[in-house]
Simulated assay, not measured.
Amino acid sequence: MKRGKLTKYVVMLVVAIALLIAANLTLDSYQLRIINLCGIYVILALSMNLINGFTGLFSLGHAGFMAVGAYTVGLLTMSPTTKQMNFYMKPIVPWLAEVELGFLPALIIAGIMTAIVALLIGAPVLKLTDDYLAIATLGFSEIIRILLTNMQSVSNGALGLKGIPNRATTPWTWGIAIITIIVMTLLINSSYGKAFKAIREDDIAARSMGINIFSHKLLSFVIGAFFAGVGGGLMGSQLGTISPDFFKFTYTFNILLIVVLGGMGSIKGNVVSAIVITVAMEVLRFLDGPLNLGFTVLPALPGLRMVVFSLILMLVVLFRKDSKISKNIMLAVKKHVKTK
């Protein structure tokens, strides 16, 4: 890396850290919560961007990866007393009942567990392409959610987990977000990153150049899942309460919205998009309540906020008709609707 570019990155890092310190000292708890969510969504967006944007895969399994990470961190950081209070319908398995780890080891284990799940899923499904891969990964995400719903003695079933320690403070969320940005930048500028982009552009040409297509796809999938698991762990800690219903397809759709609007294969764009959309989601929260139009008052329409963001994604897809990812999104959504 050239000295000028390195200096630029160091200055940007120092400015970012200074802004985060100032925010941590001046903002209230609600505003800091939004700042933390911005950092978490940066991690999730970059992890999906590695898979979908840089490697050209069309995966819709991020919600499942997040669920694995969130439950892993929750079960490893909760105290034995809190676990006993949660698992009143059916006792927790003995090997988890007395386990209580620090936040950092729990996050690392969550990432590793999610990467292992991605490895098991990726081995069979990454031989598929385009919308077939999207449907397969979406199906596996739903399988993970159903397993969490039915594994009463491990995940507490549909009741979920309550009382997860809130360790996802600003230094944690944005510290890991900055590490994710650095890792992704170094990875994309390495020989592996060039191979990922070659596969995205033309996998036949990449194979003729000696690139092992399957192993590189699997590597991208596993690394992306690792960071998705870490992001899910941070999200679970931030919320304090999780359940299987929280990790439905809608969550993957939200992250895909950030990635598409930020630009497929753009690290800077995804960072900016994650921050803007997360803040906008909070600013537009009034759409879920009664709307006073002056001459009339519309009743509360829960979910209207997400409808607005869905429309935004549809408009982006319509304006980018020529892009491969837009076609894949439309095909996947049509198939998903048919299966319903």
Results as ranks from 00 to 15, higher is better:
Val333Trp: 13
Val125Met: 05
Phe253Val: 04
Lys327Phe: 08
Gly233Phe: 15
Gly294Tyr: 10
Lys83Arg: 15
Ser220Lys: 07
Thr170Val: 07
Ile213Tyr: 12
Leu120Ile: 07
Gly160Lys: 09
Leu218Trp: 13
Leu318Met: 13
Gln84Trp: 11
Thr170Cys: 05
Met209Thr: 03
Ala18Phe: 03
Asn292Glu: 11
Gly111Tyr: 01
Gly233Asp: 03
Ile258Gly: 10
Lys162Thr: 15
Lys268Asn: 07
Thr7Leu: 00
Ile144Tyr: 14
Leu75Asp: 00
Val283Met: 06
Met306Thr: 04
Pro299Gly: 02
Ile277Phe: 07
Asp202Val: 15
Leu107Asp: 06
Val42Asn: 05
Leu13Val: 05
Gly289Ile: 00
Pro80Ser: 08
Ser215Met: 09
Leu187Cys: 02
Ile223Ala: 04
Leu331Phe: 11
Tyr30Val: 08
Arg305Lys: 15
Ala106Leu: 06
Leu104Met: 02
Ala67Val: 02
Phe246Asp: 03
Gly193Ala: 12
Phe309Ser: 01
Phe65Ser: 04
Arg3Met: 13
Ile109Lys: 08
Lys338Ser: 08
Asn254Glu: 03
Asp203Arg: 13
Thr339Cys: 01
Ala70Lys: 07
Asn212Gly: 08
Leu218Thr: 03
Leu101Val: 15
Phe295Tyr: 09
Trp174Val: 04
Phe286Asn: 12
Gly163Met: 00
Met151Asn: 09
Thr7Gly: 01
Val10Gln: 00
Phe295Leu: 09
Met85Arg: 03
Thr149Asn: 11
Tyr251Pro: 07
Ile116Ala: 08
Ile223Val: 12
Met85Asn: 05
Lys127Cys: 13
Leu37Asp: 02
Gly193Met: 11
Met66Glu: 00
Ala63His: 14
Leu20Trp: 10
Leu287Phe: 06
Met89Cys: 03
Ile258Met: 12
Asn36Phe: 11
Leu60Pro: 09
Leu318Ser: 08
Gln152Arg: 12
Pro299Ser: 05
Lys321Leu: 02
Met89Arg: 09
Leu287His: 01
Ile199Ala: 04
Ala45Met: 00
Leu219Ser: 06
Phe58Pro: 07
Val276Glu: 13
Gly240Leu: 10
Asn52Pro: 07
Trp95Val: 09
Ala134Gly: 06
Ile40Asn: 06
Gly102Tyr: 07
Glu201Gln: 12
Pro80His: 08
Phe247Asn: 12
Phe140Pro: 11
Leu96Gln: 12
Leu291Ser: 14
Leu147Ala: 06
Gly262Cys: 01
Thr77Val: 14
Leu96Ile: 07
Met48Leu: 15
Met330Gln: 15
Met314Trp: 11
